[in-house]
Design a protein around this nucleic acid. Structure first.
Lengths: 243, 243
DNA sequence: GGCCGTTCTCTTGTATACAAAATGTAGCCA
DNA sequence: TGGCTACATTTTGTATACAAGAGAACGGCC
């Protein structure tokens, strides 16, 4: 039984002091994003409770939130499991994000205050630096932050909230379906180009940048049906192994 | 203290036998949609528990789900309240729905199986009939079902789920901001026209139909800022009245 | 040897008890 | 009269106990 993540999370949890359901959500989400919790991993309520030092009440609330974020699957009378989005859903998630993020950046073009542009540029620069020194986790962090900033600054907050969700979901499937042997899902220049068009106020160019960026990202994934089956098997294998 | 809805819900609840969190979510959602629960109405956990004959555990789960559906506001250490979307959010919700539903119907054009088309037509016909006999609740029901069917048949299920959420949210704000004295928010022919274009497979025409339909709906609302203040006052008045 | 039913354990579903926070109220003082 | 503080009530946050269901292991049977 693989329960290495127990001790890892416990260490992080203790450092922060008291833990609330939000802490659990953040930690689990991060662990899924970083693939420390592979799809299919069971997340029993008592176990999580022991790990974080809280009762099942808090854990249950956290699990409910994680389910609404599409991070885990929660079925009645069954242990919650880390979700394994299908190939089909992956494609649909990318399509949805193209639509929503394209609209958001089009709305955003030429409207971003200087400080927001500066924050975005900082993330873009940080991503380049992290890539060049081979620090993939840090690069992902910067890239995620950049897109989350776009979502936060969306003039349309409803679309912004949707984008936040879609960014998380695409990140999860990228980690899941990243072509084996690929060190990084970095697309040089994409973010810089987008930021330039945003500052110039060219809405359609920005929308095009987003489309190109997401197409490029999707092309880095291995979404062939044959591989999908193999992946499914390994997921199921892992699931029983950790039961 | 106005607690008429207690007895009303209780009656409905008892009829169904055992109640689960899903039942509570459905009933409260419906009540909000039908404006039996005006914005600002407090929803204390114990009260709901007594009404439905369940403990706070179940109620809490239901409230969490309702909050994730944007039906209620849940703040820490505070009683849950029926949400009152602002004028600004109303406009943004309509914009988001135009984008998403437009894309969904564009994807759907020419791809709907005969049985699905038949189900959609039936709802459209039912809406006309309900309008003509002046049964507004039934008309709303048919209209809602029609749009939910569109969302369910979306080839892209991620967008479909988003559309389901947006349909609910727009329905709530329509009920909220409907111009006073307007008997119905019915736009004759809109749904029929859309269905014709869907069957003909004209994606862009269908997208246009959705844009027109939502523009027409939005035009029926009273979204002037001056009125907004008055509405806010009345909302606050109601909230204290029912405290 | 393989398949099926039973039991047994583990996990979730629900209810309740207690603690903490916030709100509302009354009384006091300037 | 107006505002403020202290108290009382209400309501949520958390933990725990018990019940019900699902899944796994075991034994019997074909």
């Amino acid at each position: 039984m693989n329960n290495a993540w127990h001790t890892e999370m416990l260490a992080e949890a203790k450092a922060g002091g008291r833990v609330s359901d939000r802490d659990i959500v953040d930690k689990v989400r991060r662990a899924v994003l970083m693939q420390r919790l592979p799809p299919g991993t069971k997340l029993p309520e008592v176990t999580l409770g022991e790990v974080f030092g809280v009762s099942r009440s808090v854990v249950r609330k956290a699990l409910t939130r994680l389910a609404s974020e599409h991070v885990i699957d929660q079925r009645p009378n069954q242990v919650a499991r880390v979700r394994a989005p299908s190939i089909e859903e992956t494609r649909e998630t990318f399509d949805a994000r193209r639509l929503v993020e394209g609209e958001v950046v089009a709305l955003l073009a030429g409207r971003l205050p200087a400080e927001a542009m500066a924050a975005l540029s900082e993330q873009a620069r940080g991503e380049v630096a992290a890539f060049e020194r081979g620090d993939e986790p840090a690069r992902i962090e910067h890239s995620l932050t950049l897109h989350h900033l776009l979502a936060e600054h969306s003039p349309n907050r409803v679309l912004g909230a949707m984008l936040t969700d879609l960014v998380l979901r695409t990140s999860i499937v990228i980690a899941l379906y990243k072509r084996a042997g690929l060190a990084s899902c970095y697309l040089a220049g994409d973010h810089t180009r987008l930021l330039a068009h945003l500052e110039a106020g060219d809405a359609e160019a920005a929308r095009g940048d987003i489309h190109d960026h997401l197409n490029g990202l999707e092309a880095l994934l291995d979404l062939s049906p044959r591989e999908a089956r193999i992946d499914l098997k390994s997921i199921l294998g892992r699931a029983t192994e950790q039961a």
